[in-house]
């Protein structure tokens, strides 16, 4: 479990103080994956450096499995760091060592017999699917394979926490998905607590259980994925369930609908159409599976259906909205 409380980090730059982190708090329960998303300059890198104690925070605390990291003495920093496995954007492998040699590096820092070490390296390389590349040098591996070696190396010291700093930002989309699925699999099988720093929403969508949106050193939105995706007013919903640009409907009211997982499932739109005799036009929408549940966000235009030249019944918008809400759909009148 990772607990970050009111973390602050200020730098002095040319006489003025810059607050790179301005009171960041977050909690990642054991065995779950938390994404920290933000633009460049939001404070993501500073957060990573404070979590690994490469930088000391100005105030606030970081604790891993209930042990405070920020208060450890300089002499204990090294053993405290071994509880954290870290995956970097560019893998940061040593070019002078083979894949096996790179994975062995953290094991050389602790006392371990050669046979134990070799067995562990082989097991770790197998875990990331690179058993046959043990003798290859990083320059002979693809970007995705290098990142797999990086992940194996991060796991070498049996950490309980895996910290990933933009792990897929330098990879192509297909490789990105492979690496993300590997991280998810490892988190599930090894019970790892994972914190992923990223600027890619795809990473959050694919593997995160919860997410924090970081902006100018502050967390502006935070929560389990199903919560942040389930609220129409949040900042993250537009990124998680984007509404593509669309042409506004000519007449009639426009509704924003959001269905999440079990709530509001079923044929919402056709039911609406039958029950209220409405023509329902889908203007824009997106459907995603997030944290194992299906979410859909739709913008629909409503108009009374005129059948067989019979005069259309006037539209009772309030009734429509309360019907939808009763069905568990989040509704907002957009126009």
């Amino acid at each position: 479990m990772i607990t970050v409380t009111e973390l602050r980090k200020s730098y002095r730059q040319g006489g003025r103080t810059i607050d790179a982190l301005d009171g960041v708090s977050l909690e990642v329960p054991r065995g779950t994956i938390h994404g920290v998303i933000g633009h460049s300059g939001a404070g993501k890198s500073t957060l990573v450096r404070c979590l690994t104690l490469l930088d000391r925070p100005t105030s606030g605390s970081v604790s891993i499995d209930g042990r405070d990291l920020t208060s450890v003495k300089d002499s204990e920093v090294r053993s405290a760091r071994r509880r954290i496995g870290m995956v970097f954007q560019h893998a940061n492998l040593l070019d002078s060592r083979t894949a096996a040699g790179n994975v062995a590096l953290p094991l050389e820092l602790v006392r371990l017999s050669k046979s134990e070490k070799d067995a562990k390296v082989a097991r770790l390389l197998g875990l990331v699917g690179l058993a046959e590349f043990a003798d290859a040098y990083p320059s002979q591996l693809s970007g995705g394979q290098r990142q797999r070696v990086g992940i194996a190396r991060a796991l070498a010291a049996d950490p309980t926490v895996l910290l990933c700093d933009e792990p897929t930002s330098a990879l192509d989309p297909a490789t990105t998905d492979e690496i993300l699925d590997l991280i998810r699999e490892l988190a599930d099988t090894l019970g790892l607590t994972v914190l992923i720093i990223t600027h890619e929403m795809n990473v959050v969508k694919r593997i995160c259980d919860s997410v924090s949106l970081l902006e100018k050193g502050r967390v502006v939105e935070q929560g389990p994925l199903r919560e942040v995706a389930g609220s129409l007013n949040g900042r993250l919903v537009q990124a998680l369930l984007p509404l593509p640009p669309h042409i506004p409907s000519g007449t009639g009211p426009v509704l924003d609908l959001l269905t999440a997982g079990g709530s509001g499932s079923g044929p919402v739109l056709s039911e609406l159409s039958r029950r209220f005799s409405l023509d329902v036009t889908l203007l824009a929408g997106s459907v995603e599976t997030l944290a194992g549940e299906q979410f859909s966000r739709m913008r629909v235009g409503l108009a009374p259906a005129s059948e067989d030249n019979a005069p259309a019944e006037p539209l009772e918008l309030n009734e429509v909205v309360s019907h939808l809400r009763a069905r568990g759909v989040t509704v907002e009148v957009a126009a």
């Binding site: 071994r82 970097f88 940061n92 002078s96 590096l105 010291a157």
Partner: peptide, 29 residues
């Protein structure tokens, strides 16, 4: 030698001497 490689070694708990011996010198060889 890329700063990231040094960071990686520090994060895995290397001493300064280990960073020099296992990262800086072999990488710059």
């Amino acid at each position: 030698v890329a700063a990231g490689k040094i960071d990686a070694a520090l994060v895995m708990g290397s001493t300064r001497m280990q960073v020099i011996r296992k990262v800086l010198l072999p990488e710059a060889l």
